[in-house]
C-alpha cells in the first residue's frame, strides 16, 4: 500500500508540473470558454424570449440539458483524445529513460507499480475534470438550478476519465514511443466507445444486444448524465478500470520474460 502511494505521489507531481498537462488544460479552457459561452448566451436569449427570468426555477432542468449536458459531452470527447497524451508518460517514459530497470529491481510488485501509476494519472486527469466543472459552477453564481444532477453527471465524467486513464496506462506500457502510446490510447478509447456502443444491429438477438449494451461505456455514462446513480454502472466502471490496470500489471510482469 505504502509502495503504491510512493509511486502515485511521485508520478502525480511529475505529471502536474510537466508541460503536457498545462498545454492540455489551456487547450481545453480555450475550447470550453468559446463553446460554453456561446451555448449559454443562446440559452439566455431564447429563455428570455419565451418569457420569465433568464434562469428561473422552471428553467433549471433546461439549463442543464441545453448548456451543461452539452458541455459535459464535449468534455468527454476532448478527454477521449487528450487523456492518452497525458498518460503516455507513465510507463513509456520510464522505458525511454531507462528508469524502468529501477522499478523492476526494487522490492515492489508489478501490481503496485500499475496501481500507483493509475492513481497518478487519474489524479492529474481530475485536475482537468475540475476545470471543466468550474464552468457550470461559475454559472451557478448567477443562476439557480438543481445541483444533484450536475454532480451525478460529473461523477460519471470522473469515472469515464478513470476508464480513459486505465486504457492510456495500458497503451503506455506497450511501447517506448510516447507518440505511439497516444495513438494506441485514442484508438482503443474510440473503439470501446463506438464499437461497443453500436448494438442496434443486434436487435434481433435481445440477449446479445443487452450484453453489448452493458459492456458499452457510453450507455453507463448516459445514465450518470441523466442523474441516475446506479450501482451496476459504478460496478461496471470499477471493473473496467481494474481490468485494464491488471492487464498493465501483466505487461510489466512480462517485460521480465522478454
Amino acid at each position: 500500500m505504502n509502495n503504491i502511494l510512493v509511486i502515485a505521489k511521485k508520478d502525480f507531481k511529475s505529471l502536474v508540473f510537466s508541460s503536457p498537462l498545462w498545454v492540455i488544460s489551456t487547450l481545453c479552457s480555450a475550447v470550453w470558454s468559446y463553446l460554453y459561452l456561446r451555448e449559454l448566451s443562446t440559452f439566455v436569449q431564447r429563455s428570455s424570449f419565451v418569457g420569465g427570468g433568464p434562469a428561473g426555477g422552471a428553467d433549471s432542468l433546461n439549463i442543464y440539458y441545453e448548456v451543461f449536458a452539452k458541455h459535459i459531452s464535449l468534455s468527454n470527447v476532448i478527454f477521449l483524445f487528450l487523456i492518452p497524451a497525458l498518460t503516455m508518460k507513465l510507463l513509456s517514459e520510464e522505458r525511454k529513460q531507462k528508469t524502468y530497470n529501477l522499478l523492476l529491481t526494487v522490492p515492489i510488485s508489478s501490481l503496485s507499480i500499475a496501481v500507483g501509476k493509475f492513481l497518478a494519472g487519474f489524479g492529474a486527469s481530475l485536475v482537468l475534470v475540475f476545470i471543466s466543472l468550474l464552468y457550470p459552477l461559475g454559472t451557478g453564481l448567477v443562476a439557480d438550478f438543481s445541483y444533484s444532477i450536475l454532480f451525478s453527471a460529473y461523477l460519471g465524467l470522473a469515472f469515464i476519465v478513470g476508464a480513459y486513464v486505465s486504457v492510456g496506462l495500458l497503451s503506455s506500457s506497450l511501447t517506448k514511443s510516447p507518440l505511439l502510446s497516444v495513438m494506441m490510447g485514442v484508438i482503443l478509447n474510440l473503439s470501446i466507445l463506438i464499437v461497443l456502443g453500436q448494438a442496434d444491429f443486434l436487435s434481433e438477438y435481445p440477449t446479445f444486444q443487452s450484453m453489448i449494451e452493458y459492456l458499452s461505456i457510453g450507455s453507463h455514462f448516459v445514465e450518470f448524465m441523466q442523474g441516475l446513480l446506479q450501482s451496476k454502472s459504478i460496478i461496471y466502471f470499477i471493473s473496467f478500470i481494474s481490468f485494464f490496470v491488471f492487464l498493465t500489471n501483466r505487461i510489466i510482469e512480462s517485460s521480465r520474460w522478454r
Binding site: S14, F17, S18, Q97, K98, T99, Y100, N101, L102, T105
Partner: peptide, 11 residues
C-alpha cells in the same frame, strides 16, 4: 544495482 545507463529521472 547500477544498470548500464544510470536510472535517473531528469526532472
Amino acid at each position: 544495482y547500477l544498470p548500464e545507463i544510470p536510472p535517473v529521472y531528469e526532472d
